[in-house]
Design a protein around this nucleic acid. Sequence first.
RNA 1: GAUCUCUUAGCUCAGCUGGUAGAGCAUAUCCCUUUUAAGGAUAGGGUCCUGGGUUCGAACCCCAGAGGGGUCACCA
Length: 569
Amino acid sequence: MAIQLSEQEIQRRQALDEMRKRGIEPFPAALFPVDTLSKQLKQDFIERRQVVMAGRLMSKNIMGKASFADLQDSEGRMQLYVNRDEICLGEDKALYNVVFKKLLDLGDFIGIKGETFVTGTGEPSVKITELHVLAKAVKPLPVVKTDKDGVIHDAFTDPELRYRMRYVDLVVNPDVKETFIKRSKIMTSMRNFLSNKGYLEVETPILQPIPGGAAARPFITHHNSLDTPLYLRIANELYLKRLIVGGFDGVFEFAKAFRNEGMDKTHNPEFTMMEMYVTYKDYKWMMETTEQMLETICMDVLGTTKVTIGENQVDFKAPFKRVTMIGAIKDHTGMDIDGMDEVHLREVCAKLNVPIDETMGKGKLIDEIFGEKCEGSYIQPTFITDYPIEMSPLCKAHRDNPELTERFELMVNGKELANAYSELNDPIDQRKRLEEQAKLADRGDDEAMFIDQDFLRALEYGMPPTSGIGIGIDRLTMFLTGNDSIQEVLLFPQMRPEVFQTESNVPIIELSDEGKAVMKFLTEQMSLGDLKAKSELSNKKWDRVTKELRSAGKIEIWKDGEALMVKEV
RNA sequence: GAUCUCUUAGCUCAGCUGGUAGAGCAUAUCCCUUUUAAGGAUAGGGUCCUGGGUUCGAACCCCAGAGGGGUCACCA
């Protein structure tokens, strides 16, 4: 154990040893028969009820022979009243005087039996009759206190510590816990909505020989016995469509996808999306389904469709507005790009000050204009429809205009929340479009796709008309929990690996060469100034060496009148 | 990737123009039987992120590095 312990950690380890000496196992094996949780107990509070509870000891307020303490379980906190003579019926008062008062620390898990009552100040409490140690915490939690005005003192807020030690964050910040409970409810609600429609929840490969279905850089790994590269999926779309070919009417998957790109407030290398495909439908049907689903989720999770996102009030009440992409660009720039070729589009980009580069094709140019000039202004849920064909290689051409596709993106608070198509099911056209994408790859667009030959073969066997959608679960959770950072809605956001001090990388405490040299000059007793002069060290090094020698217990420095003296210990 | 910024006790944070580090909570010891973030008294607790440099002297100034956060670029 080379990790250096703080004073409090040492004290807690000593308390743990002391418990064992007294015959109390700090980590007992047997179950503890909990029958009551704090929130429920407070909601239907009746006095004189017998309860068995367990949780962390989160505060102790000792007043001689009686104490108040807070017990925190999965739902919240309950105040305990601990009276010496109620928990120690005989002459031996050690359980109270020693175990409770001294050996139990904040953060320890305890189990209690007791009876409910209300204190003089009106606080529902439990007067305990039994106290059991269930698990000792040898590291102190941050102490966060909330006063009666709800003001939080000494909040545990450092994002680095909160994300790296989410377990501490969850213990100490109830709002954080609430966010993840909501995230789970959102997914449950969505799952129920889709299952109730008769769609099948499926699981498709995360390790894929060809990373298809989106334009993004993949993570690559290697399978040893196949001796072949495998990619972490960037999307599951092509697998779900194979299942539609196989004869399912509706399939969906909550899928982790992995994209090897930049990280910021809204992008984590792994993220979750729900993708769904339904046969004999088109993207118009999908818009209706999506707005119904989101409205339902809001009602299930929040009880309202109105959500505050940052400065904005957003209402998820269906129906949502529908705007075509060309219409959106016209609305925000006054430019009509309908039917324009690449050369003219580049001129428009130049005129609008939209930054572009050589690798961009027609679709990408339009996307850039939209992203730069329009995207941010759609605060209320809005379907942007009819994307240019070039940037939607898996999407069916528009029934009225072959330049466009039957695609929509759902914009909320200026961000994309969902992306959906009438899926392209013409295998000949699909092959051609994927090949065009591959050509773009040659132009240097490193996000262009690999061609998945097996997917094309599947389409050749025939895929019914299908509409598909992908919804970003992390984003949806951000919207519905009022968080503006993806890290706040991921339990364990990706971070650079932490460097730990362990035995292998803590240098063995041995005197430095300078330290050894100084020791050689040291006589029985001499002035500190003389020793420094003899050492010929720079001031900084001298400072370090004296500190080192002192903490190693090699020398002692004291004041003799005005003079600083030093001697060997 | 560019740029700005932060890193001081277990936690939250002060720390002036460069002069050998402070507070509150937590912890330890003692007193206290219905308290409400903080009862009273006393005490201990520091690799000032790391490594160099400047200086008589560095938590503070300079350089390099690590980690975090913000903004921009790219992506969902």
